[in-house]
Design a protein around this nucleic acid. Structure first.
Lengths: 222, 222
DNA sequence: AAATAAAATTAAGCAAACTTAAATTAATAA
DNA sequence: TTATTAATTTAAGTTTGCTTAATTTTATTT
C-alpha cells in the first residue's frame, strides 16, 4: 500500500538517483528526509518487498520501474501545484514548495489532470524544473548544467533553482539568481571554486556551496 | 497536536452536535466515521485532554470553543474546495466530496484564503451548505430573523427564502434576494415600512409584504 | 424493582513509522 | 594488512490510531 511516507521515500530516492546516476546511499537519503538511517534501512526493506525499490543490503537504494512510476506521479503533482499557486493564486516562487509538498499526496489523478488542463499544459514549474506528463515522460528540454560546472568567459541563463531551502531561495532572489536571468562568468577562484559573476551589471562572488543550488543553460554566441 | 484523524473526529462531532442540538453519542460517531466504539472512546479522552472536546464518561461528545474552531476551519476548507472543483474545474456536484475530503487536511490557512479570494468569496458550497468565513462565522449557527425585523444601518445576509410562491421567488431572484446574498439596510419608511436596501451596489425598495417572505442573519463587523 | 438489552469503557494487542543503542559490514588510512 | 572510521543493519522501544474481547454502566422492558 502506498502511504505519504512511502511516496516521500520514493520521490527522494528517484530525484537523488537521477542526480548521481547510481544507487543512493542510505545516509544520504536519511539526511535528505531528516530521518534516522535505521528508519531508512527498515523502510527500504518494505519498499523492496513491494517491488518498488531495488535494494540489497549495504548496496544503496534505487527505484524499480514500478517505484519510479509512483515517484514521477508525485513529482508531476508537486510541480503542477506549484504552477497553480504562482500563476493562478499569485504566490511567490519561494512560497510554493511547502504548500505543494502537502497537496501532492492528497491529489487524485483525475484532479491533477484537470489542473493541468486548467493551466494549459505547462511544461516547466516556477523554478524551471520540467513537469512529467500523464504517462511519466519528461518533455524535451535544453541541456542544463549545475552552476558549479560552468566555464569562465561564457554566458549562461538561470534555468533551475532548487526551492527546498527558503532562506537560500530568498538570498538567491536578492542577488539576482532568478529564473531566466542572464549572467557572465568572469572568473573562478582556484582556492575554493568561488565564482565571480557579472549579473545585472554588477560583479558578485558566488560560493561553491551556493553554486550547487541552481542550474543554468549555456547562452550561445552572446 | 492536530492530526488528520483528530480533524475528522472534530468535524464529525461538530456537524452532528449542531444537527441534534445536544451531545453526540459514541455509537453514532462510531457509525459515522466507520470506526469502532472503543476507538472513539479512546480518542475522545485524548481530545478532551487537549481541551478540544467536552467529554464525561457515558455522557456523549461535544466540541469546546477550541475544538469548534478546528472543526469550522476544516469545514471551511472542505466547502471552498468543493466550490473550486465545480466552478473552476468543471466537476459535477456529486464528484467533489471525496476529493475535498482529502484536500481539506492538506491546506494551509494562507492557501484557503487565496482560493476564497480567487473564487470571489462564495457563501455556499455546491450543495447549498454555507461556508464559514475566516473568523469561523457560520451562517447556520447565526440567529436568523425575518427581513421585516431588520434594523437600519446594519449588514445582513439572506438566509432563507420562502419558495412557496414561484412568482415571488422569481421576483426575489431578479432583484438579488438569493441565498447568501449580502445587503445593507439604508432606510425604513415610517409610512408603510418599506425598506430601502443596498444590494450589489444598487439601492432598491422592498415592500413590507415582500419583506415577510424571506429571512436574514446579521453580518457582524461588516 | 429485577432482568435484560444496549451503549460505553477498559484491556490487551497490532501495524506503521519512527527513535536510540548496539552490532555488523564496508571503506580508508597508517 | 591491519586498525580505525564510517556506513549500515539489527534490536528494542515508543507513539498513534486503530482492532477485538471482556467488563461495566446505563437504559429499557416486564
Amino acid at each position: 500500500m502506498s502511504t505519504i511516507s512511502k511516496e516521500n521515500y520514493l520521490k527522494a530516492i528517484f530525484i537523488e538517483e537521477v542526480e548521481r546516476n547510481s544507487h543512493v546511499p542510505v545516509n544520504i537519503l536519511s539526511a535528505k528526509l531528516g530521518i534516522s538511517q535505521a528508519a531508512v534501512s527498515d523502510m527500504s526493506k518494505k519498499l523492496a518487498n513491494e517491488d518498488l525499490l531495488d535494494y540489497q543490503k549495504y548496496k544503496g537504494l534505487k527505484t524499480t520501474q514500478k517505484g519510479r512510476n509512483i515517484a514521477l506521479d508525485i513529482i508531476r503533482k508537486h510541480r503542477l501545484w506549484e504552477v497553480f499557486l504562482t500563476n493562478t493564486l499569485g504566490y511567490n516562487c519561494d512560497e510554493v514548495h511547502d504548500e505543494a509538498e502537502m497537496l501532492e499526496h492528497s491529489t487524485s489523478t483525475k484532479l491533477i489532470n484537470k489542473i493541468e488542463e486548467f493551466l494549459n499544459f505547462p511544461i516547466l514549474d516556477p523554478h524551471g524544473y520540467p513537469i512529467p506528463d500523464k504517462n511519466g515522460n519528461f518533455p524535451n528540454t535544453r541541456e542544463i548544467i549545475n552552476f558549479s560546472q560552468v566555464e569562465v568567459g561564457k554566458f549562461y541563463e538561470v534555468a533551475r533553482v532548487n526551492d527546498e531551502n527558503k532562506e537560500v531561495m530568498n538570498y538567491l532572489t536578492k542577488i539576482g539568481i532568478v529564473l531566466g536571468e542572464k549572467l557572465f562568468i568572469e572568473n573562478s577562484l582556484e582556492f575554493d571554486k568561488t565564482l565571480i559573476v557579472k549579473i545585472r551589471g554588477n560583479s558578485i562572488a558566488i560560493s561553491s556551496q551556493i553554486s550547487e543550488i541552481f542550474s543554468v543553460s549555456l547562452v550561445e554566441g552572446a
